[in-house]
Simulated scan of single mutants.
Amino acid sequence: MKGEIITLSVGKPKTFDWNGKQVSSSIGKTIVDECFLTFDSFTGDGVANEDFHGGKERAVCFYPYEHYAAWEKQFNVKLEPPVFGENICGTGWLEKDTYIGDVFSIGDAIVQVTQGRIPCNTISKFNHVPTFLSRIVETCYTGYFMKVLKEGKIESSSQIVLLERKQEDISVWEATKVMLLDRKNKAEVERMLKLEDLAEDWTSRFQKALQK
């Protein structure tokens, strides 16, 4: 199966005025036709909150385009990608169909899925939908992050091709569900910790969950 890129987007943090409060965020990205992906990030991309975004294991943020129609219907709004601050809005690789450790080629680059995304209320503020964050958490339709195994140019016409599947036990959706909703379930947390290709940040968070 191959996925298609709907939008390829990059952007540095900007200052937004939300209810009279100045907030820095890179959620408002700009669509581009092509961009070079380094081990750290796309050229011209950046993050404001380094606790949840950025770093080598979160160099690429992907969001499935298939979710857009459902969100539009649920909230009665028009959503034009990339409203989740994603670098790639693409088809074919939903959280339930994608597994931690999956390796993809996208253009000249090769990337590997490392973790789901931990969303923040910036999504609600940016889209003017107060309940957006809570619904994303409830559904675990968060999108996910990838690290870069091979740098290269990606074009908006590039396909997203699965090269290798390291395991078929834990999907991105399952891992995200445990992280966001079920961290008190020690058996599930221990299962997550067996993932060799899980991002260090999530490994640390799961380890801390076991200690509580």
Results as ranks from 00 to 15, higher is better:
180 L>R: 05
154 I>A: 06
172 V>R: 01
145 F>Q: 04
178 V>L: 01
154 I>Q: 01
202 W>P: 03
162 L>A: 07
161 V>Y: 10
172 V>P: 00
180 L>C: 01
157 S>R: 11
187 A>L: 08
176 T>F: 04
186 K>R: 08
157 S>D: 10
194 K>A: 14
173 W>C: 04
191 R>D: 01
165 R>S: 10
154 I>Y: 01
167 Q>F: 04
173 W>H: 10
201 D>E: 13
156 S>K: 15
158 S>G: 11
155 E>F: 12
180 L>S: 00
148 V>Q: 03
156 S>Y: 11
149 L>Q: 09
189 V>T: 02
190 E>K: 15
195 L>P: 02
174 E>H: 14
196 E>W: 10
182 D>W: 08
148 V>D: 00
196 E>Y: 12
189 V>Q: 00
146 M>E: 05
154 I>K: 04
173 W>N: 02
195 L>M: 08
191 R>W: 03
165 R>W: 06
144 Y>P: 01
194 K>D: 09
193 L>V: 07
190 E>F: 10
197 D>L: 15
176 T>G: 04
152 G>Y: 07
201 D>T: 14
179 M>A: 05
199 A>Q: 01
171 S>P: 02
158 S>L: 10
158 S>C: 09
193 L>I: 09
192 M>E: 00
163 L>A: 12
150 K>Y: 11
162 L>H: 07
151 E>F: 09
150 K>G: 10
158 S>F: 09
189 V>W: 01
166 K>E: 07
180 L>Q: 00
201 D>Q: 14
194 K>T: 15
157 S>N: 12
152 G>K: 08
172 V>Q: 03
145 F>E: 00
156 S>M: 13
199 A>E: 05
162 L>C: 11
159 Q>Y: 15
193 L>N: 04
144 Y>H: 00
156 S>Q: 15
159 Q>R: 14
202 W>M: 01
169 D>N: 14
182 D>Q: 10
147 K>N: 12
148 V>G: 06
189 V>L: 04
190 E>P: 11
166 K>G: 07
192 M>F: 06
149 L>P: 06
197 D>S: 14
156 S>C: 13
150 K>V: 14
187 A>R: 08
194 K>I: 11
156 S>R: 15
